[in-house]
Design a protein around this nucleic acid. Structure first.
Length: 126
RNA sequence: GGAGUCGGCCAGACAGUCGCGUCACGCUCGCGUGCCGAGGAAAGUCCGGGCUCCACAGGGCAAGGUGCCAGGUAACGCCUGGGCGGCGCGAGCCGACGGAAAGUGCAACAGAGAACAGACAGCCGAACGGCAUCGCGAGAUGCGCGUGGUGAUGGUGAAACGGUGCGGUAAGAGCGCACCGCGUGCGGGGACAACGCCGCAUGGCACGGCAAACCCCACCUGGAGCAAGACCGAAUAGGGGGACCAUGAUGCUGCCCGUAUCGUCCCCGGGUUGGUUGCUCGAGUCCUGCGGUGACGCAGGACCUAGAGGAAUGACUGUCCACGACAGAACCCGGCUUACCGGCCGACUCCCUCG
């Protein structure tokens, strides 16, 4: 498996996973996204997304944002702390082109990666 | 060459890198390799079915839908052909297109008047009254003032109670007549039918419009939906079977009839979260032949063409060009409707030019 792969273990899969984040998460915002995260009891960090119909009522727009986030995430997940993340798209994301969203996400990942080693976040194994 | 009509098709291409999902194969057992991986509308959820469960008894009322005729289809509110009406020079296009002498109701604005109508302007001056002039008088002439005639002309309107001509009249009018049109009845032959054609008789001739207003007539419709439903499976215990009785509640489309469950007692084994399944081979796609005007049907052959599940089908770079629209499967089909950059093919119509 290549260093930039995206296995199922690196994603939130169950409704329970999402519910567990609620209430105990810290937040980090960027121009077009909002990240809610909390220490994970897993050996890797995991990503879940929420792109509501309020962002766009067209499925094509929502799919584009989610796919872009997935692709961006898989490139940086090795450097992130061991946390569960719920990434929520803001309504402004719909108007941005791919390059702008990509740049915005890169800044968000950088701030998240800076928390690595923070006692509140836990550390990724290996 | 230009303008247009109808039908069908395509929906950026190629290469590289990094990824995702199903399936197949391999092994060192979580990796590798290979195949395949959104649409013509996947959309709106507006109709019709399949499938599944509701214990699919049934009847009546109600409610909803459809509405020229014939055919196609699993079925339809869809499609095909035909009829009728309207639009277009034409190819063609559009139409909820049954019933208004069963009843109820509605008709804004404009206009004089809108349903057994009506006199604003105009036209007329026979009759009665009035006024003026003339006359001794009876009366005559005039005015068009009041009562009045008129539905021909103007204007209004979506719509004003057939059209043309002649007669007729004070002026007019189906008032009368001829022709045309219309209604009704009968007959003939054509078509499965809707319907159209021909002939005869008859009525002076409106029985106006709206039924996507109520309504009448004919036909059709059980309810819920894949979070349907089925199976596997640890704990507190929802569950299954039998017997009994009265009312109420609940379910079976709203209501009524009818019917089942909930209650009590006894007996028996085993149920939420999760996993598997339903889940893609189907009214399937393509080709050929035959039948049919056609929708479509029949026969033969070939093919397998997404199947996810917090939800794959993507991102980046480069090259090229016509610079890329609308837009993302969620049980599956058949339609309809709506959105859409641009391009291609075929058939046909009209106009112009040349030969």
């Amino acid at each position: 498996m290549g260093p930039f792969s995206l296995p199922r273990a690196a994603r939130l899969l169950k409704p329970g996973d999402f519910a567990a984040l609620r209430g105990r998460s810290r937040r980090l915002g960027s121009s077009h996204f909002l990240a809610e995260f909390a220490p994970a009891d897993q050996p890797t960090c995991r990503l879940g997304q929420a792109v509501s119909r309020r962002v766009s009522k067209r499925a094509v727009d929502r799919n584009r944002i989610k796919r872009l986030v997935r692709d961006s995430y898989r490139h940086v997940r090795e450097g992130l702390p061991c946390v569960d993340i719920l990434l929520i798209a803001r309504q402004s994301a719909k108007q941005q082109d791919n390059a702008a969203l990509r740049a915005d996400l890169a800044r968000l990942w950088q701030r998240l990666a800076a928390l690595k080693g923070d006692p509140g976040t836990g550390t990724m194994r290996g």
